[in-house]
């Protein structure tokens, strides 16, 4: 999924500084808990008191922080949402600059090994 956020709020992990050109972020939409679509976007109605924007899975309410690279902030998921590095090419098109940060999908035996480039 693609979302665009305020760049000043971004706190991406080390090495991902260039992954979100103009604040545009791409994350896998497959929940790292049991594989539902992370289909909810939580936007605070009263930002002063409420937690900030989050990606939420409707199945068991795993909640991911889009500003910090998809880290789990709530719920049963055990891995962050894999992020896809983006770039804007010379023609102004949005392109993937590489593979996902981790393997996508729910956890299994070998899920924590490096993603291959196939």
């Amino acid at each position: 999924m693609l979302i665009r956020v305020d760049t000043t709020k971004l706190k991406l992990p080390e090495g991902r500084a260039s992954w979100a050109p103009e604040g545009i972020l791409a994350y896998s939409k497959i929940c790292t808990h049991a594989g539902c679509a992370v289909a909810l976007y939580r936007k605070p109605t009263f930002p002063v008191l409420e937690p900030q924007d989050a990606l939420v899975c409707p199945c068991h309410y795993s909640t991911f922080d889009p500003f910090t690279g998809g880290t789990v902030t709530y719920g049963p998921a055990g891995r962050p949402l894999p992020q896809l590095p983006l770039e804007i090419d010379a023609d102004g098109n949005l392109r993937a600059a590489g593979n996902f940060s981790q393997r996508v999908g729910p956890s299994w035996w070998n899920v924590r090994s490096r993603p291959t480039n196939d």
């Binding site: 068991h60 795993s62 719920g75 049963p76 924590r112």
Partner: peptide, 24 residues
């Protein structure tokens, strides 16, 4: 089963980079 999946605290049991017991 939904209830149990939702109640379970968040962790995957890992050995090195192998995930022995994923949370679900």
């Amino acid at each position: 089963l939904i209830g149990a999946l939702r109640l379970m605290p968040s962790f995957d049991l890992t050995i090195g980079h192998f995930t022995l017991v994923p949370n679900p």
